[in-house]
Design a protein around this nucleic acid. Sequence first.
DNA 1: CCCATGTCCTGGTCGC
DNA 2: TGCGACCAGGACATGG
Length: 270
Amino acid sequence: MPELPEVEVCRLGISGHIIGEKVSKVIVRNNKLRWPVPDEVKSLVGYKVLAVDRRSKYLLIRFDSGTLLLHLGMSGTIRVICEDTPVAKHDHFDLVFANKKVLRLNDPRRFGAVLWFADHVDERGLLTKLGPEPLSDEFYPGYLFAKAKNRKVPIKTFLMNNQIVVGVGNIYANETLFQAGILPTVLAGDINEERLNKLTEVIKLVLTAAIAQGGTTLKDFTQVDGRPGYFAQSLLVYGRAGQKCLKCKTKLEEIRQSNRSSVFCPKCQS
DNA sequence: CCCATGTCCTGGTCGC
DNA sequence: TGCGACCAGGACATGG
């Protein structure tokens, strides 16, 4: 469930279940995620969850003694379930709480991460080089234009660069460029300010709508069958190559950029 | 065999 | 020539 809206929906979904709850046990069934899960995660037994924050696609669970960082990679899901829920394949990590609820991470591809920042220090610098949050005021009209100056990279690759703006992955890069009417192949530095401001506005709208939609689809993270919502979202171009554009009926085309699929409408986007 | 929601890392190129 | 900024592609593991 990897794009920003899904992670934000996850944050909202688990917050109410774990904030203020005390950790009674930490279970690491498989520590071979993107990086080894550090033994220090065991040290948070006895501590209460103070807050659940998000930066980019990282979930940050705050304790007095430090921060537990979770990342879902390409295929991870997190649920809050009852203690007696049977362990399934790829259930790699559990945070068991005194109230018998369990935060459980499942990740078949194991591109996700569980890390521990003692005293909240981000030793790996995972969070330090990131660009602004797309829904914050630091992502303002004029920002993309300033950043794109002299950049010869295609706009789609530019958008997916976390140092420019975080949280726009492949799906939403495709969707927002379609809605802004910009071809994914146009060089970032060649786009005028007006069009980049339009793109900024679209990014905020699409991500906000996706969060709202995910929230209604996911409902309750304590449900065993709680499913990520993005498959149900109304995607206009992603995954629709060869089909008709929903605006003009032209056949949608697909190319590869930076080894990722780009789908676009050759008539609506220029 | 092909493809897949992410992102760190390496090694190469470009321009001052 | 040096150096930093920039960029393309590989790598990771599993499932459809």
